[in-house]
Amino acid sequence: MTLTTAVDHRGRRPVLVGVDGSASAQAALAWAAVEASYRHCPLHVVHTFSWPVIADPFGLDLTEPMNDSRRAAAPDVRVTAELFSGAAAPTLLSQAHAAQLVVVGSRGLGGFRGLLVGSVSATVAAHAPCPVIVVHPHRDGTAFPVSPVGRVVVGVDGSDVSAAAIRFAFQEAERRRVGITAVHAAMPTRQHPSLQVPADIVEQVDQQLFAAAMESERVLVPGIDVETKLVHSHPAQALIDEADGAELIVVGSRGRGGFTGMLLGSVSQAVLHHAPCPVAVVHPHRTRATKRSPAHQFADLEEQA
């Protein structure tokens, strides 16, 4: 079943959002609608069900949640909606190949109480071919406001994936007209005492690497208020500490210390599970045939981000 409304967007790939009637899904739908408006692209709403079902899924109005203040915030977005029979995660992943961004709620109707992130959102964040935003509702269950209220926080570690996350963060901040807080966590390294580098030298090197990682995006996306924080703590904890009041946290799928083949690293998983605000997970964009340079990765990510 497919439903279409509003105007065309010149063949742009859509923002894809999964809905199931939960508070998390309503928050995701609100976020996705405004995201599609910012990107001047369609919004594609997907709902899945598995047999047997108690209610009549074909009587479900998938765009009903759009007929309120959220529609007013994104009046020109073209909305399509589809109902699928099948498991949620595989369905969303199959649809994600035609999308520029996937938005999911942190926990659906089938989630266990107390879990911040459900199996569907974690699976989609790990396996989607494009960036994924996981939207946590407020602690009282209400959706995040459609108007920006905080800063975009991004984790920086000097890796190629981090570079892609920085670019995504700058573009999201530009769309929302908010500032960026870039966080680099410098953890002490274990080494033989005879090889120990003075702390002030390590600090200087970290500052230089941090500045270099941010500089290219400052040039490409000027006018953004950027605050940099070099902290001495675990990277996940450093990012979670910045989450209260944040508009969005952006992390790379795997950091510099990640194991080859892992789809989500320990830092991105921890932030995804424990941050109280929406979290964007950005994957590197590579082909199997060749390893892309950061500059080419950025070019490839233009449409995705």
Rank of each mutant, 00 (worst) to 15 (best):
D140M: 11
Q171Y: 08
A143E: 10
A186I: 05
V154F: 02
T48P: 02
A126S: 15
P131F: 06
V152E: 01
D76S: 14
E174N: 12
S119L: 06
S159H: 00
R113Q: 12
I133V: 15
D140W: 10
A72Q: 14
I133S: 11
D56F: 01
V134F: 06
A125L: 08
I166V: 15
G59A: 11
V178M: 06
P57Y: 02
V153G: 02
D157W: 00
S159M: 00
R139N: 09
I180P: 00
G150K: 08
T123E: 14
V178C: 14
G59F: 00
G118R: 04
G155Y: 00
V120T: 11
L109A: 13
P148K: 06
F112R: 11
G155A: 03
T48Y: 04
I54F: 08
R151V: 11
C130T: 12
F58K: 03
L62T: 04
P129Q: 10
V154D: 01
A128H: 06
F58C: 02
I133C: 12
A186G: 06
L115A: 13
V77M: 06
F168E: 02
P137V: 07
A143N: 06
V146P: 01
D68S: 14
G150N: 08
A81F: 02
F144W: 13
L115R: 12
D61A: 14
D68W: 06
R151T: 11
P145D: 09
Q100A: 13
L83T: 03
R107K: 10
R177M: 08
A98D: 13
V134G: 05
V149M: 10
G141L: 11
V53W: 10
V102A: 08
R78S: 14
G141F: 09
A126Q: 12
E174S: 15
V103R: 01
L115P: 01
